[in-house]
């Protein structure tokens, strides 16, 4: 799909409604990181990736790895909206018997390319997928989304080294740099900055963007996805934790806490109000 800012603005607001509704109903989950990552994911899924909702395991599809698996509600809202599975599943989030586990399960959810949840592993998996693509001379791309706190995991850098070593220009990632992790500000818990320099020194190419500016996000994913220079690409996206819900924005407690039913109602009303102001 071509870039359409109005469409994306509207879509992102609708998806935020799903996310807040899902987590409020579940009574637990990770709203902060789901909302900070959403705009990056929406542009990737609606504008960039070559996928077929009716054929979720199509061999030539682009792959996606949600390395920060706790942003599951964001990916669930997108996959159900695109028709990978029914929207009727959304209220089941985190309930026994549901396909929508607290963290994504590839064996349960159509459209999930790898099960995640334990931080630090996704980039390695994406490297494996990209190696397979090169080996089979396929044109598909492998995309991954990492958290910024997740960069504290040593395995991320094992994978970063391998991606550059094997010249995986079919691999592109975004780092959801919302600046907060469970215990506080990332630079206070364990400083991963400067993130750009780290990836550069590992042999990647990088682009720093505003992770809520749709035009910038689109340009960045397109830049990363069309790479042919033997280098993997990293987009460092400045984002706001809890983006779109005024009382969650930059509030660390909403990393892993659901809104109360009243808070949920309030959040939904405010998002709907904002949605009303966007051109249909």
């Amino acid at each position: 799909m071509k870039f359409d800012e109005e469409f994306l603005k509207r879509k992102a607001a609708e998806l935020r409604l799903d996310i807040v509704e899902m987590i409020t109903r579940a009574g637990s989950g990770h709203p902060g990181g789901s909302l900070s990552a959403l705009d990056l994911l929406a542009v990737l899924y609606y504008c960039i990736m070559n996928i077929k909702p009716e054929k979720p395991v199509w061999k030539d599809r682009d792959r996606f790895v949600l390395s920060k698996g706790h942003a599951a509600p964001a990916i669930y809202s997108i996959l159900s909206d695109m028709g990978f599975f029914s929207k009727k599943e959304l209220p089941g989030l985190r309930r026994i018997g549901s396909i929508l586990q607290g963290h994504p399960d590839m064996r349960k959810v159509p459209g999930i390319d790898i099960s995640t949840g334990s931080l630090g592993q996704g980039l390695s998996v994406a490297v494996g997928m990209a190696l397979a693509g090169k080996l089979d001379a396929k044109d598909y791309k492998v995309y991954a989304l990492l958290g910024d706190g997740e960069l504290q995991e040593g395995q991320v850098w094992e994978a970063a080294m391998a991606a550059a070593h094997y010249k995986l220009d079919n691999l592109a990632i975004a780092v959801d740099n919302n600046g907060l992790q469970i215990d506080g500000k990332i630079e206070e818990v364990m400083n991963p900055y400067p993130i750009e320099d780290k990836f550069l020194s590992f042999g990647w190419k990088i682009k720093s963007i505003d992770g809520h500016d749709f035009a910038e996000i689109f340009d960045a994913w397109e830049w990363a996805g069309s790479s042919k220079d033997g280098k993997p690409s990293a987009i460092i996206a400045k984002t706001v934790k809890g983006k779109g819900v005024y009382f969650m924005e930059n509030v660390v407690e909403f990393h892993g806490k659901a809104p109360t039913p009243e808070e949920g109602k309030d959040a939904l009303a405010k998002i709907k109000e904002a949605l009303g102001k966007i051109k249909p």
């Binding site: 590839m106 390319d113 790898i114 592993q121 998996v125 997928m129 990209a130 190696l131 397979a132 089979d136």
Partner: peptide
């Protein structure tokens, strides 16, 4: 995990 990624692509 690289092994895991390769396996999801039919290896």
């Amino acid at each position: 995990d690289i092994a895991a990624g390769l396996s999801t692509c039919g290896k």
